[in-house]
């Protein structure tokens, strides 16, 4: 059943359109950087963007940092918000359920398919950015870590892979929120917008000192911690917390989705 959900996701034109859009912005940034040779001032702009001017092989990370705050979560919210509500809206949900497909299993399969989408999107963005970065910005045999030590290409590859994994996991919270909302409403748009509203609130509260007590619980709190993978030695603390936090979001919201959906009257 998970395989079926994956096939459905992969055969959807929208999946590929979304991934194409996700690639557009980093590629544009790479072109602009290559043409103007103007990097962001230190301390401003997305992580790693100032470093890519001297080493294009770091561009996958800059590209991920570019899409991470907004583009990627929007894509995830739309895809996850559509997962149940979209089936309800098109009427296919009732046919799935009388097949019969267990409702809990359907939720889990939907979540896994969303995660697979994120992984696919992130990997494609990283690969595209590597190609674009190497071609347009040139490469260096040795890259510098954030701590100023030298990283071999193998180390960069391993850490980039870890970053891809971490960013994928970071999207779990959004996916779970959108999936939960998707079981409440029959409108995919409402579910996606609800999840986005939650994220925007979370980002806003993170900038507010008065909300400090809430901050460890906010889903976006540890998003940027993928930078910690490029410190030397790797700073695991926030990464582990980030993964744990996302796990909590998944457990709680998948639980809520389960509580709501398994006894819900499907009248669509």
């Amino acid at each position: 059943m998970i395989a079926v959900e994956l096939r459905k996701m992969l055969r959807r034109p929208r999946t590929w359109a979304t991934i194409l859009l996700l690639n557009a912005l980093p590629t544009l940034v790479a072109v602009l950087l290559a043409v103007t040779d103007l990097g962001p001032r230190p301390g401003t702009g997305p992580a790693f963007l100032s470093a890519v001017l001297s080493d294009g092989t770091l561009f996958p990370l800059a590209a991920l940092a570019i899409i991470l705050p907004l583009f990627l979560p929007i894509a995830v919210a739309v895809i996850a918000g559509d997962s149940v509500a979209g089936e309800a809206q098109s009427g296919t949900l009732r046919y799935l359920l009388v097949r019969p497909v267990g409702r809990t299993r359907l939720l889990v399969a939907k979540l896994i398919s969303v995660i697979a989408f994120v992984l696919l999107a992130v990997v494609i963005v990283a690969v595209t950015a590597y190609v674009v970065g190497s071609l347009l910005l040139g490469d260096q045999p040795l890259a510098a870590s954030v701590s100023g030590t030298t990283l071999t290409p193998e180390q960069v590859a391993v850490r980039t892979a870890l970053a891809i994994g971490y960013i994928t996991l970071s999207m779990l919270g959004v996916a779970a929120i959108a999936l939960f909302l998707s079981t409440i409403t029959d409108s995919p748009l409402a579910a996606a917008l609800g999840a986005l509203a939650f994220l925007i609130a979370s980002s806003l509260l993170l900038t507010l000192d008065a909300a400090e007590a809430l901050q460890p619980y906010l889903p976006t709190r540890y998003w940027l911690s993928f930078v910690d993978l490029f410190r030397d030695p790797i700073f695991w603390r926030d990464i582990l917390r980030g993964v744990g936090l996302q796990a909590v979001y998944v457990v709680v919201l998948l639980g809520a989705a389960w509580a709501n959906f398994t006894t819900k009257d499907v009248t669509s």
Partner: peptide, 9 residues
């Protein structure tokens, strides 16, 4: 001693 920031150190 490293002073960490979101995008560097």
């Amino acid at each position: 001693v490293d002073t960490l920031s979101a995008t560097g150190e």
